[in-house]
Design a protein around this nucleic acid. Sequence first.
DNA 1: ACCATGCGTCGGAGAACTCCGACATGTCAA
DNA 2: TTGACATGTCGGAGTTCTCCGACGCATGGT
Lengths: 104, 104
Amino acid sequence: MADVDVFSALANPVRRKLLEALKDGPRAAGELAGDFALSRSAVSEHLAVLRSARLVREEPRGRHRYYHLEATPLAEVGEWLHPFEHYWRARMRSLRELLDEENS
Amino acid sequence: MADVDVFSALANPVRRKLLEALKDGPRAAGELAGDFALSRSAVSEHLAVLRSARLVREEPRGRHRYYHLEATPLAEVGEWLHPFEHYWRARMRSLRELLDEENS
DNA sequence: ACCATGCGTCGGAGAACTCCGACATGTCAA
DNA sequence: TTGACATGTCGGAGTTCTCCGACGCATGGT
């Protein structure tokens, strides 16, 4: 599969959930598939996308295949996001001030 | 247009560039379109996606339409990302340590 | 050696995305 | 009022996404 960029990989909610599920440690592919109302092959394809975005690593072990989270590429998203953080924080601050006024 | 979630809105590089271009202040639609090797209508459709994700606001002014950045929905991305930050920072730390060893 | 299990991949269907040129609408300027 | 300009929207073409069932290939157990 051609390389997938991180942003596209995160665009799908199933893939985001997969990454969340891997935060607590590696899990086998079939076990992960059990969490979704999807066919096993669909989940396998989502894992392939995450693999090609280097967001997970696979470790074959016996007849299972354990997937590990590889969070490093997420740093790119964090870096893209960072210059915007100031804007939404300012927004929230003024919203909070507005609410404080009303409640006083 | 049906509501678009923030992650999907960010999946497209043109839309990310549009948001970046709006950081320094509002710009007119046609002016924004000039930055891309794309037809005007394509850019207009990307702006519509950003609108339906509430990432931009339009202000009609004369025969121009100024687009403003509305960064608030990006906070959702930041919040999703935050629990992962620890992982990639740990990764980078150990990478740095490895390089320090080699250079000493 | 055999068979069940775990999993990736393939072929195909349907939906969604991306782009374009053409058209419609509203605004300013003469 | 007329014409030029700024912009959104529509119809359609080509591409990509998402999903499924079927199949193939290892591995591990009997």
